[in-house]
């Protein structure tokens, strides 16, 4: 397949944050997503990693067409979908092909609907309620999502299910439309460890069984290690390092990536190690720091870091990072 499956170029999203004072000329902007590039192949899994507030969720909403980008482009299967409106998205079948699984399975299910209503809702919305294979589809989606046997769950309400089961319901509701790309925004962070593995394995399995590509958004690199092909590390609205999973884990180049990897807990007290704990939190994306946007928190920053914004450098054909220390 020569055509790229998903191609994102220079994507930006600024939110207006109101004027600092009544007399100020320009409104201030929240630079939620500030120039993001990446591509994705069919049935590939990419992990999008970064701290809260780095713009991961906004990026997902842009890809879903639930927010309008300020600049840049998104191409899906060769078609420019950057500025399609709701109706156009629906008519190009994007609302079926691209599905999203949200962070919080407690919040993303309507408490007044039964599981059956939730899982069949996408079919209702897409006018597929009267297709002959409807029940079969619902059943298959639920069983593929690990809700077996399906009919045990149909009449229940979300509050009668465990967290893991709720997340499966969300996944089942996404699968029922047979999507090609799933955007999963922190799908396991609210779940217990024993169930996390299950949901991640489920997504890994779906990718093989149904050829679904997955964008896995998370703050915890640890949880996607074995399952993602590639990883993109985001900081303040930009990707600062991107590469194949193993390479980035074994040989991180950007100081931010190094810190992120160092704080991931290792489940073995004999391997307790020095951790690079960054102080403070992701700065407010209204005032992006000059030069390298990471420099106020960077443990190895040099003088020039406050002045020039490092470009993305190719270290090899599957690994890029943006740090002045790499320019040699």
């Amino acid at each position: 397949m020569s055509k790229k499956f998903l191609e994102v170029r220079g994507l930006k999203k600024y939110f207006e944050a109101g004027r600092p004072s009544f007399f100020a000329k320009d409104p201030r902007n929240v630079h939620a997503v500030d120039g993001v590039d990446f591509t994705l192949r069919r049935s590939e899994v990419i992990a999008l990693v970064g701290e809260s507030g780095c713009g991961k969720s906004t990026l997902a909403l842009l890809l879903m067409g639930l927010e309008n980008p300020t600049a840049g482009s998104i191409k899906f299967e060769g078609m420019d979908i950057t500025h399609l409106n709701d109706g156009e998205r629906k008519s190009h079948d994007l609302r079926r092909k691209i599905q999203m699984v949200f962070q919080d399975p407690y919040e993303s299910l309507n408490p007044t609907q039964t599981i059956e209503e939730i899982v069949t809702e996408p079919l209702l919305v897409h006018g597929m309620m009267n297709t002959p294979d409807r029940d079969e589809r619902v059943q298959k989606a639920m069983e593929d999502a690990g809700l077996k046997p399906a009919d045990v769950y149909l009449r229940r309400y979300p509050h009668e299910l465990s967290g893991g089961q709720r997340q499966r319901v969300v996944i089942a509701a996404a699968l029922v439309l047979e999507p090609e790309l799933i955007l999963a925004d922190e799908p396991v962070s609210m779940l217990d460890v024993s169930i996390r593995a299950e949901v991640i394995n489920l997504l890994a399995e779906l990718r093989i069984k149904r050829q679904i590509a997955v964008i896995f958004i998370t703050h915890d690199l640890g949880s996607v290690g074995f399952f993602a092909d590639r990883v993109a590390v985001m900081y303040l609205g930009r990707i600062v390092e991107i590469g194949s999973m193993l390479e980035v884990l074994e040989n991180p180049k950007h100081p931010y990536t190094k810190a992120l990897i160092s704080v991931i807990p290792v489940p073995n007290p004999r391997l307790r190690h020095e951790r690079i704990i960054l102080q403070g939190e992701t700065p407010n994306p209204i005032n992006i720091p000059s030069g390298c946007r990471f420099h106020p928190r960077c443990p190895v920053a040099i003088a020039s870091c406050a002045l020039s914004d490092p470009p993305m450098l190719s270290l090899n054909k599957s690994h890029q990072a943006a740090c002045l220390l790499l320019v040699k």
Binding site: V193, R196, I200, N201, S223, G225, F226, M245, L249, V266
Partner: peptide, 17 residues
């Protein structure tokens, strides 16, 4: 429980739930 927990020192390890 330990098998279900991701361990970056063994990124290839398949998690078992």
């Amino acid at each position: 429980l330990l098998k279900a927990f991701p361990d970056l020192t063994k990124p290839k390890k398949k998690l078992t739930s």
